[in-house]
Amino acid sequence: MTESTGGIDMDEDSSGTVKKFAFINRKAPYGTVYALESLEVVLISAAFDQDVSLMFIDDGVYQIKKGQGTKGIGMKNFSPTYRALEGYDIEKLYVEKESLEERGLTEADLLVDVEVLSRADMAALMEEQDVILSF
């Protein structure tokens, strides 16, 4: 873990600071590397005991769509990782209602349990965050 956490030994991190971290996922899962590499940061952040939220807006909602098949494009289907987040105590997943609707999707199309928020509520939630990493 030390290499992936950048050589930082969490036990010796005496700061004890807990901040609200939000990861905003805006892009489709394939086509660019943003979704995959964002997920890598999310997993590392779990080691720092921060208050982590994931937000899915725009084409980012496709990242957690059920039934992804990537054989045809020769890439790894990393969508099962979203299901594993619970095991890392990352349980705050928010999806924007308008983004789902614009794409003809409903909560039933998603592979993880999420809270669906209106665009206005999502904006309010972003306002509450200390650190926002947008991918």
Binding site: S4, T5, G6, S15, F21, I44, A47, D130, V131, L133
Partner: peptide
């Protein structure tokens, strides 16, 4: 590693 990013955020 990525921990350096998270630490910077903290």
């Amino acid at each position: 590693g990525l921990g350096q990013l998270v630490e910077s955020g903290i």
